[in-house]
């Protein structure tokens, strides 16, 4: 517990100093709100519009969560298929590499026309694809980490394919899978949020950021940004917490 505190304290202190400096600078230099609103002004917006912010965060968060779960399941399952089938592996390898460099949120407008502009599905798909890539890549790598001595032992025990997978390959891959999910957790929020910038149904954090900006309500726009950051943090911290708990006996 104390090590966590020792590691968390310096960045927290730095953040506090930055925010304080920001406030002092905005007031002292009399910076215009459309250039940079002060932290105090943003805080006022956050507190007075809290229910709306939370509602918007739930809309975006739900899309991100659905994308995270579906993308993770698909990523793990397809990595398992790839590791057991050479043909499938060679087929999917370049495809996933291509997916990794395509800006997936750019698909959002296309998906809106495919699924109809008033459902959240397009955003969930964007989040899901963004999640799939790091989970698939990390899981695939993890599934290849078994050591020769472990493989020899399993062969000496005459373990079957499924026993090998369950007792050795999957547990060995676990830290890699969790790394993928941790990376994917914040990606899912970013993807779901940015997908909202390209139109579609209103209600999420992304749509409110764009509409606040178009109404020149900058402090308001920043309050949605703060909510987005918090949402991303929550996803990340929860993913990290699950990872730390699940791997408490696996220091490799």
């Amino acid at each position: 517990m104390s090590t966590i505190a020792r590691r968390a304290l310096p960045p927290l202190a730095l953040g506090a100093v930055v925010i304080l400096l920001w406030q002092v600078l905005v007031v002292a230099l009399d910076i215009n709100a459309y250039v940079l609103p002060s932290p105090a002004a943003i805080l006022t917006q956050v507190t007075s519009y809290a229910p709306i912010l939370i509602g918007a965060a739930i809309v975006t968060g739900t899309n991100a969560l659905i994308g995270l779960v579906v993308g993770t399941v698909l990523g793990i399952v397809l990595a398992l298929v790839a590791v057991s089938s050479r043909v499938f592996d060679e087929l999917t390898g370049p495809l996933v590499a291509a997916l990794a460099v395509i800006p997936i949120v750019a698909l959002a407008p296309v998906l809106y026309t495919m699924y109809g502009a008033d459902v959240q599905l397009a955003r969930q798909v964007v989040a899901g694809v963004s999640v799939f890539v790091p989970v698939f890549i990390n899981t695939l790598r993890g599934l290849r980490q078994t050591t020769p001595v472990h493989r020899d032992l399993m062969r000496a025990y005459a373990a079957g394919r499924w026993q090998m997978m369950r007792t050795l390959t999957l547990p060995t891959a676990r830290p890699f899978i969790f790394t993928g999910v941790r990376i994917a957790s914040s990606l899912s929020v970013i993807a779901a949020l940015v997908a909202e910038y390209f139109g579609g149904p209103r209600g999420g954090l992304g749509t409110f950021i764009t509409s606040s900006v178009s109404q020149s309500d900058y402090a308001r726009a920043w309050s949605y940004v703060v909510a987005s950051i918090l949402l991303g943090l929550i996803f990340y911290v929860v993913a990290l917490g699950i990872e730390v708990f699940a791997l408490r006996h696996q220091r490799t």
Binding site: T147, V149, H150, D152, L153, R155, A156, Y157, A158, T167, L168, P171, R174, H249, Q250, R251, T252
Partner: peptide, 19 residues
């Protein structure tokens, strides 16, 4: 003999499963 588990085996590395 391997399939019948007629031998036990140990290597230089213990090969214990860390989890």
């Amino acid at each position: 003999a391997r399939l019948d588990q007629d031998y036990g085996i140990a290597f230089q590395q213990s090969g214990l499963l860390g989890w």
